[in-house]
Simulated scan of single mutants.
Amino acid sequence: MSYSINTKDISNATGLLRGAVRAVEKAQMRAINRTASKTRTAASKAIRKDVRLKASYVNENLKVSRKASINNPEAVITGRKRPTRLARYGAKQMSRVAKQASGDTSRGIASGRKQAGVSVAVKKGGSRKKMRKAFLIPLKGSNVMGVFVRTGRGKKDIKHLYGPSVDQVFRAVRTDLKPQIRRNLVTEYERQLANALRQELKR
């Protein structure tokens, strides 16, 4: 009894091997990118559970800055590093009675009252912090407010106050996301590999 192996058999085996390699590479890339997208969504929710920031602001400043590719199977999620205006953290103008005061509608101060500091709440669910020497003023060239304190007697002797950046909060919450990331990556890889192998078999 004899059995012969010809070049066609070798070619078929080589083709299957190459197809399997392509499937693994595609599955890896797609799984990483899908997991990065899910992680970014989960991180946004975690950040907003930790601090008092709006979803629109966090989502605008937390991005998948680099997607995985076949040659570089790594995705990167980046948060805005520049500090966040303290005014974004639920800043509210406080006021007190002052009979001769004209008020200030831009800051929500009624006539007969004057400014008496600003209250903010950085942590979600935490108590508000009253800053008696702080005040709200509109930022130059915009309609948004900033929280300032005076640093001297001159007109320009003021300091704009900031709270934690999106990146700072992201770094604080991302450790808690690691188990979820691992689960998502394993699940996505298995699903993507099965799909990629089916596509290769149809070639």
Rank of each mutant, 00 (worst) to 15 (best):
T84C: 02
R96L: 09
G112D: 04
G103P: 01
K92D: 08
L86D: 02
S102Y: 03
S111C: 12
S102D: 13
S95N: 13
K63P: 03
G103L: 02
S119Q: 07
A55W: 09
S56P: 10
N71Y: 15
N59T: 04
A55N: 09
V76M: 03
N72R: 15
T84Y: 02
A87W: 08
G112E: 01
V97N: 11
T105I: 11
G79K: 01
N72T: 10
D104S: 10
K99A: 11
K124G: 05
G79M: 00
K130N: 15
E60V: 01
I70Y: 09
S106W: 02
R88K: 11
S106H: 03
T84K: 00
R113M: 13
V118Y: 14
K130F: 12
G117H: 10
V97G: 06
R80P: 01
K67Q: 09
S65Q: 01
K99N: 06
V76G: 04
Q115M: 10
K92F: 05
M94Y: 11
Y89W: 02
S102M: 08
R80Q: 00
S102C: 07
M94T: 08
A75C: 02
S127W: 09
M94E: 11
K67F: 07
L62S: 00
R82I: 09
Q115E: 06
A98D: 10
A87N: 15
K129E: 12
G108A: 06
E60A: 07
Y89D: 01
K92C: 06
G103N: 05
G117S: 13
T84M: 04
L62K: 02
N61C: 00
K129Y: 15
K123L: 14
S56D: 14
S95R: 13
S127P: 14
R80H: 00
R113S: 12
G112V: 02
A68C: 06
T84Q: 02
V118C: 08
P73S: 13
A55T: 12
I109D: 08
K123N: 13
S69D: 08
P83Y: 12
V58Y: 04
G90R: 03
N71S: 15
A91L: 02
R85L: 12
A116S: 12
G125D: 01
S106I: 00
S69L: 04
G112K: 03
G125Y: 03
T84R: 01
G112N: 00
G90C: 00
G103A: 07
G103H: 04
R107N: 08
S69C: 13
S106N: 03
S106D: 06
S111R: 13
R96T: 06
A91Q: 04
T84V: 08
K129G: 14
G117C: 11
A116Q: 05
Q100A: 12
G108K: 02
A110L: 10
N72H: 09
R113N: 07
N61K: 04
R113V: 06
S127I: 14
G79C: 00
K124Y: 15
Q93E: 10
T84G: 03
G112M: 03
N71I: 12
V58H: 06
